[in-house]
Amino acid sequence: MIDFVNKPVARLILVGLPALALQTTFFAEVKIFGVVLQIMLALSIAAGLAGGSENGALAGFVFGLMFDLVLTSPLGLSALVYGAAGWGAGYLHSRALENPKWLNALVVGLMSGLATFVLPIVANWIGVEGWLSSRLTKVMIVVALSNALFSFLVVPIARWSLAIRRSQRLAPPAEVFL
């Protein structure tokens, strides 16, 4: 049982379920300027920062897929975009030798804004209309700022989800040695 819980995918699901519950209850009701905050996206990007681009893509895929399963939008849409966001965060993380918290917050904010912008574009490509609107700018800004603040909380959670040990965390990203 403990071995199972220590596997990253199992931990991602264990973290993802309560996070999704929060997303569909608390964050669905508590809106900032009419915008729903996106904790699942924040977790996906944080996973990229904590575990590198590959882990970020995996975590983004898992969290996005879980989110898709409770939405009416096409299954796989959030998985694709969140996976890309997690990968992108990991890639940016690998470019820096040091990753202080403020830089993590900046990356989470930037990637959140980008993912929020890309999601309706991909949706539009696959035939889901109405998501691209003038409101998008406001949504991008609010989600980016809120997720930047969430980063101080979600990056440690993502580290635990991916079973990243302290020694690994302090070492340079794996991509550097490839």
Partner: peptide, 26 residues
């Protein structure tokens, strides 16, 4: 190279899985 072939494959696989799911759902 920043990514090994296996990493690229894994990421590509996730992307393709997403696209497949979108297609099936639509």
């Amino acid at each position: 190279p920043v990514y090994s072939v296996s990493r690229r494959r894994a990421i590509a696989l996730l992307a393709l899985t997403s696209i497949l799911l979108i297609t099936l759902d639509i």
